[in-house]
Write a protein that binds this DNA or RNA. Structure first.
Lengths: 135, 135
DNA sequence: TTTTCACTTTAGAATAATTATAAACTAACT
DNA sequence: AGTTAGTTTATAATTATTCTAAAGTGAAAA
């Protein structure tokens, strides 16, 4: 993904392409494979990569803005930290609680045959499958 | 579930049946339906029910002890609080993020037809399905 | 029983993740 | 260039949870 696309992605989300947002967006989206992270890990990686430090609050703001505009998804994981995922398509996860490692599973690799209907007047938004791992 | 069973449940878990543990255990396990809660909600309910207040740290300790001995399960839910469930059998959940409501789904009500194999030397511990709800 | 002692409870301090605040800054429209 | 609304920042505040150390209490032994 090129820089020009980053700018388009930001503008299309009504996010002003500030220096910080561009730096974070380039770091997150200019890569081949999907990327899982927490705000804390992202902060450390950004410091290591560019030597400049962006305020933690800005990272929180930016990550949440990307989530709100659909460029990141939030992954629920047992524990206290919040994980994000650059893969925003419908998919599932392996989770290894020993290493806190999260691995994507393509939506096509899990087929659900039987599913209950939603309770009283509610609808199903989506279905997430977690395959918890052990050694 | 009778009081005597509560005592057995505590003793079988190598937990001394102190006044506080018995009170918490009775509140959690002397009911027909499964019960979902956070430490905070449990604390409020205990205060409302018995007018006595048990130290928060004790509630954390006790709930974690019940989890360690298999009388409670922990449910991962998007968000910052940790949910617990008195249903410790293998099962799944509906989750309504608008109301933070968690509803059990019997393991038999979801059938998975196709599942990927675990990565490199790891094994599958269990599979959890979340059906996220909307209006 | 009483004594003893390891296990518990408790209030409050400490920690960790996240959010709020308010002042300084900046993109972008005019 | 000037204005303004949106943004970043350091710091404070908040929230959930864990730690600590002193006081309390089951239950095994005397």
């Amino acid at each position: 993904m090129k820089k020009i696309d980053i700018l388009k992605k930001l503008r299309s989300s009504r996010l002003r392409p500030t220096k910080q947002r561009v730096e974070i967006a380039k770091f997150l989206f200019e890569r081949e494979k999907t990327f899982h992270f927490t705000v804390e890990s992202l902060n450390k990686l950004l410091i290591k990569k560019s030597n400049s430090k962006i305020a933690l609050a800005t990272i929180y703001n930016t990550v949440h803005a990307f989530k709100a505009s659909g460029h990141l998804s939030e992954v629920e994981v047992r524990g206290n930290k919040t994980y994000f995922d650059t893969n925003v398509s419908n998919h599932h996860h392996f989770y290894d609680s020993e290493t806190s490692e999260l691995i994507d599973i393509d939506a096509n690799d899990i087929v659900i045959q039987k599913i209950p209907k939603a309770p009283n007047g509610k609808k199903i938004k989506n279905v997430e499958v977690f395959i918890n791992l052990k050694k």
